[in-house]
Design a protein around this nucleic acid. Sequence first.
DNA 1: ATGAAAGCGCTAACAT
DNA 2: ATGTTAGCGCTTTCAT
Lengths: 348, 348
Amino acid sequence: MGRSDHRLGGSQLPATPTTLADVAERAGVSRQTVSNAVNNPDLLRPDTLERVRQTIAELGYSPNRAARNLRTRTSSLIGLRFAPAQEGTANAAMDRFVHSLVEASQEVGYHVLLFPGDDEDPIGGYDNLLRSTAVDAFVVTDTYLGNPQASWLSEQRAPFVAFGRPWDDEEARHVWVDVDGAAGTRLATQHLIDRGHTRIAWIGWRKDSPIGEDRRSGWLKTMHANGLSTTGLASRVEDVVHSGAEAAAVLLDESEPTAFVCASDTLAMGVLHTLWIRQLAPGRDIAVVGFDDSQVAQVFPVGLTSVRQPLEDVAVEIVNTLSLLLTHQPIDTWGVLLEPTLAIRESS
Amino acid sequence: MGRSDHRLGGSQLPATPTTLADVAERAGVSRQTVSNAVNNPDLLRPDTLERVRQTIAELGYSPNRAARNLRTRTSSLIGLRFAPAQEGTANAAMDRFVHSLVEASQEVGYHVLLFPGDDEDPIGGYDNLLRSTAVDAFVVTDTYLGNPQASWLSEQRAPFVAFGRPWDDEEARHVWVDVDGAAGTRLATQHLIDRGHTRIAWIGWRKDSPIGEDRRSGWLKTMHANGLSTTGLASRVEDVVHSGAEAAAVLLDESEPTAFVCASDTLAMGVLHTLWIRQLAPGRDIAVVGFDDSQVAQVFPVGLTSVRQPLEDVAVEIVNTLSLLLTHQPIDTWGVLLEPTLAIRESS
DNA sequence: ATGAAAGCGCTAACAT
DNA sequence: ATGTTAGCGCTTTCAT
């Protein structure tokens, strides 16, 4: 069945896409040989390979994804539940992470498929994609307390890597990549100590957040390791600007700190607000460090020093681990902890 | 060929996924009938439908995506090139838009596939996905001047909808959805006029940005419509905080405006910086309005009034149009322009 | 090193 | 209203 609708040098796609058979016929080889030229070029004699490759280029052939997926029972797709950044907070880390993930996935021949989350039915989206074999694996980002996704996926024996430690679950036996929050606040606190500060306050989240407690511990340990007191210097509030501002006001009145380390850029913005009201200059009078290196930290007129998560590295690590999982290679470590850095700006 | 690995009430996925044939055998109908039960339930007798549906539920059957895709020559996937938010600017609109797109797509049975952009080869990613029939359509977001993607996709007769007008290209014959930037700045300017301001300055982008010029025109026309002079009240700079701050300083010195309308939140942040340095209170002494309602505007201690793009509506409109395109239904309008709103905060 | 045959799971077209 | 047949485009298996 000859086909005549190819625009060889043309710019328009043929009405019906070029197939393996088209290439085979034109190159005078079998379909299998074309398939090998694409997937196992080593099997071909150099001259055959060259001829087939040229025909592929001429016809602009690209293997049909659906057919390949059906045959190989793979999709080359990684599923990611995409929850939006919360309005009113500075946490736009997701954006940077997703981009890194897309790039890293591309490197190993994968694409990222986004699906929405449903709070009513947190595993619904996962279940659908899994049953219909629409994705090969998942990246799970929301591993907060009591989140059923990771354990559910484990039960299903579905390949996935979590961004975030299984804080609450001793039993968890899945692979994860995370950023060492305590190391980040250690970096921040030591930075302030090196600048001569001794009364460094902490403004963090409520006690039921393991991530928050982890970040808090970095501050606490670094203070103590340097023989500094932390009495009356810590506050736990909700992650909103207003709460950060209030906490800063109280701390300033009661404990006279000269610097603040915050669990988030959102809280740091609150501190800056209080400083502004009191006519205190950030960086000169009082130092402030945030967490996440959000756009807010970068755009704020008085650049906000902030702990920056190495999201690019996280993505690469996740994709590499996923590759191992999907090729059934042995995983040497269940968890990888990456070190954040400190983006130093005027506020310290 | 009977199969015995189904865990009917169990929580684990069968080693080999359930297929149409499994359901058909178990329900005592033909494969086609099962297919119809899923895709054309109207064709079945109610009792048959019920029986098949129950079997589907029992076995936890979900159609294999690859097989369906191969057969129907569709993928139910919408491709989106995901470029990261630029560091150092406040433009995190992408994040919100992507989420809206994912949600809207889900509603009509589509998922969003992300692929990375390559500045060297802007159409490479599109070409690959198109040739391999990996996606049904694209959403194109970066329709700036001289961007070849839209025209290239048009040439290929690939289904796509652009978020953004084809500013430069009179010839463009593709479908687009955009937000009326001029209406946004009109809203902002009128808001300030209603508040009693008469000397309202504009800080925008360089002249070669059609989006910038569009936004500028909203300010200009509203000023003139209200009989207000604009002489010496406009400035065109690069979209960075520093430039916004400088422009504000110059304008304050030379033209004594009482309010600023900016082409972006980034520039507005610059204005706020200058006000801070000069001990002027935003909102009380000088009013400021930004554009994009970014997280920066929301988190900034003195809440920044900002023009908010209706990205949720944009996504819905795009997906609806895409649905029409993909089902070869007639499109009534080539372009849709949506109205932004004004998020009013303390800075005005 | 290359080719032929089979079949992945589904749905369009046709037949009953 | 339901069943039968064929084939989407590819890769795995086996034969040459």
